[in-house]
Computed example of a mutant assay.
Amino acid sequence: MSTGANIVDQDFFEALGYRHYVGDPFADDEVLRQQRIDRIYDTYIDEDQLRVCDMTIAEIAENLEKRPYSSREFIEQMAVYLERRGNYGQSVVQAAYQHQVPIFVPAFSDCSAGFGLVHHQWNSPESHLSIDSVRDFRELTQCKLASNYTGLVMIGGGVPKNFAQDTVVAAEMLGFETSMHKYTIQVTVADERDGALSGSTLKEAHSWGKVDKATEQMVFSEATVAFPLIAGYAYHKGNWRDRQPHHLAELFTKPQPKVVTV
């Protein structure tokens, strides 16, 4: 689960050969605008290059069957595009595709991809593809059902957080017997007192039947400080060495499980 900014504006953008540059948060934004430089706090990105990224998404859409797609399906096609152009750089989109790891971006249009898809639909009003967020939710629920137990590690919050947590409730609504997420970690600087989703606690999520409060941990920290420590601990502990990859993307080439009547 991710955001469009991470997957498209950052990863896919750089896989196309473009870069982000160290900038100045106190720069004159009018000067930057005139020079077609977009600022993301202290990072710069070339607007003209970003337009190429937009139109690459439009090109991918124009060459696919015109129907609703989950974000996972479309992101796989982005990886196929990179493979065809001989891209062998460090791309999350491409690596996930090669290892059959599905990526979901429930708010897919809230990024450079949105501009490309708007262009595609505007110029093909009678026959175009669309991104189906309900299909995202259904496919995520399939991932939950296919696992003996699940855990969540969340960096930030927002829409990806809610979709991931809600798979438990969705599975129960469909008539399946399932368990709450066995463990959950969230790294965030958001505060629960403003009522927003990103800062809602995992303890609160237990009341909805989403996560087990016995093994949840809120980490109130800037992500680039906390997450490397967590990832380093998990890597050096070494339990991953005896685990087999799940290849969850293969789920979507198989029949869906039948609903159990309760």
Rank of each mutant, 00 (worst) to 15 (best):
V92W: 03
V134Q: 05
K161V: 03
N162M: 14
F137L: 07
L152Q: 04
T150P: 05
W122H: 11
A95Y: 11
S133K: 08
Q142W: 14
Q142Y: 08
E126L: 10
A95H: 09
H120G: 04
H119P: 01
Q100L: 09
F163G: 00
L129W: 02
N87L: 09
F137T: 01
R138L: 10
Y149I: 13
A146Q: 09
N148E: 15
P125T: 02
Q100G: 07
Y88E: 13
C111V: 05
D132C: 10
V105D: 01
Y97C: 07
H119A: 15
P106I: 03
A146V: 10
P160H: 05
K161C: 05
F104R: 02
Q90I: 10
S124E: 10
A164H: 01
Q142V: 08
G114P: 01
D166Y: 12
D166C: 12
V101H: 08
Q98Y: 12
T141G: 05
Q142H: 11
Q142K: 14
N87E: 12
A107S: 14
S109H: 14
A96D: 06
H119M: 11
S133E: 08
H119G: 06
H128S: 07
S133C: 13
F115W: 05
K161M: 15
P106H: 09
R84K: 15
S124C: 06
Q100D: 15
R84I: 08
T141V: 12
A164N: 08
V93G: 02
